[in-house]
């Protein structure tokens, strides 16, 4: 019978044991009260300062196209952004370009705005679901009331108090794109020239957006739940990003350890066999 070495045993660990270790690690780090000082990257700082530079009453469009599948990454971003907008007493409207995103963003926004004393229709509005982002942006750039017609509660757009003095996207100061899909390129391509964009992608999408940051087509970016944590630190609030960050960091340390151990064991096993 072939003698099993430590290295061959390491190479054949049941994957379910690794999953279990990972789960225990996540539970432990979620419960841990460890504060890790963030090193806030320039993209997040610029994101924060772009909103800070707006004046009370300025209008912001929140493009919210995420749903349950990326809730853990986009919800912390969405909550932190809305809190920041309300702290600055900005007016905002939300629009969704995927069907499930409409209700999730509307429900969350209603909860957050009621906590801050914002009134739907007066201080903010939700434009509901729009099936085609390009046509929606081009239509809103000309005439929002004509392009959107009704908010999610079926109230006519032109009768909403929040839309006083707003005719088209040209009257907005900023777009915040919170998304797990490729909506950013549509905003960049078809927005009015004076409209600035800041971006909240999932981690998967972030790497491709650095070219837009470099060319100043977007002014700032917060990446996934980690970016939300860094943003929350600038805002001085404890949100979902702050609650998730320990688990994110410790789970990455664990995965890197697994990768190193696995490679080391494979290397040693080959050496032993040779």
């Amino acid at each position: 019978m072939e003698q099993r070495t430590l290295w061959s045993r390491m190479m054949s660990i049941d994957r379910r044991i690794l999953y279990l270790i990972l789960a225990v690690n996540i539970v432990a780090s979620l419960m841990a009260r460890v504060a890790i000082e963030p090193d806030v990257p320039p993209a997040v700082r610029n994101f924060y300062e772009t909103i800070e530079a707006l004046q009370p009453g300025d209008m912001v469009m929140v493009s919210s196209t995420w749903s349950a599948g990326t809730l853990a990454e986009n919800q912390p971003q969405f909550e932190a952004v809305l809190r920041h907008l309300m702290r600055k007493r900005l007016r905002f409207t939300i629009i969704s370009f995927s069907p499930p995103a409409r209700d999730i963003s509307h429900r969350l926004a209603r909860r957050l705005t009621s906590e801050a004393g914002y009134v739907e229709g007066k201080d903010w509005a939700h434009f509901g679901y729009s099936p085609d982002i390009i046509l929606a942006i081009k239509g809103m750039s000309e005439d929002i009331a004509q392009a959107i017609r009704q908010d999610v509660r079926r109230a006519p757009i032109q009768q909403l108090e929040v839309m006083q003095g707003i005719k088209s996207l040209k009257d907005y100061k900023l777009v915040v794109d919170i998304t797990p899909s490729d909506t950013l390129t549509a905003w960049i391509s078809y927005r009015p020239a004076n409209l600035n964009i800041i971006y909240c992608p999932t981690s998967v999408m972030a790497a491709e957006a650095y070219t837009f940051l470099d060319s100043k087509q977007i002014l700032g970016m917060i990446t996934g739940a980690k970016g939300a944590y860094e943003y929350e630190q600038l805002l001085g609030i404890v949100g979902l990003g702050t609650r998730f960050i320990n688990a994110i960091q410790f789970s990455h340390v664990l995965i890197i350890t697994f990768i190193l151990l696995g490679n080391f064991a494979m290397f040693m096993q080959r050496r032993t066999q040779a």
């Binding site: 990326t70 853990a72 999932t202 981690s203 998967v204 990446t223 996934g224 739940a225 609650r243 998730f244």
Partner: peptide, 20 residues
Amino acid sequence: GTIFGNTVMARMALLIGRVY
């Protein structure tokens, strides 16, 4: 590789969200 690394972070965040 950077995109793949970010993908791992995204998937991990989804798991953390469910455990939370």
